[in-house]
């Protein structure tokens, strides 16, 4: 790479690392609550990549298509997160389980 590092690239690389972190968290974290947080981090990493790449094409404004997609994505991710929380809470209340550990 002879070109100087652009600032969007810093964020894009961060997105890549965050993604792996979130994925590892999704597998390794035990408690439902943390697994849900891991999915949120996973999602945020993807959105960060979209937006940092959109910054690259900044002319008059940044590429609006990824921005719109990310807003859509955030809402979708939060909805799914709320649903997952509801399930986790009900499971905890009904059975006292907070992990998948002892499930068959």
């Amino acid at each position: 790479m002879t070109a100087p590092v652009e600032s969007y690239q810093i964020y894009a690389v961060t997105a890549g690392i965050l993604f792996s972190m979130g994925l590892a968290g999704l597998f390794l974290c035990g408690h439902f609550f943390k697994k849900i947080i891991a999915t949120k981090i996973l999602g945020t990493a993807v959105f960060l990549l979209f937006i940092s790449l959109a910054k690259r094409d900044f002319v008059e404004f940044a590429d609006p298509v990824p921005h719109a997609m990310v807003i859509t994505g955030i809402v979708v991710a939060v909805s799914a997160g709320a649903f997952a929380l509801a399930l986790a809470r009900r499971i905890w209340n009904e059975t006292g389980r907070s992990t998948f550990e002892d499930s068959q």
Binding site: A12, A15, G16, F19, A24, R56, V59, D63, V65
Partner: peptide
């Protein structure tokens, strides 16, 4: 595995070209 994935992702990301996006179409 996660570290490996991160390495792969970062390599791919820094090699992404200039793109162009849909900014002009949208405008």
């Amino acid at each position: 595995a996660a570290a490996g994935l991160a390495a792969v992702l970062v390599t791919a990301i820094v090699r992404i070209g200039d793109g162009g996006g849909l900014t002009e179409e949208a405008a």
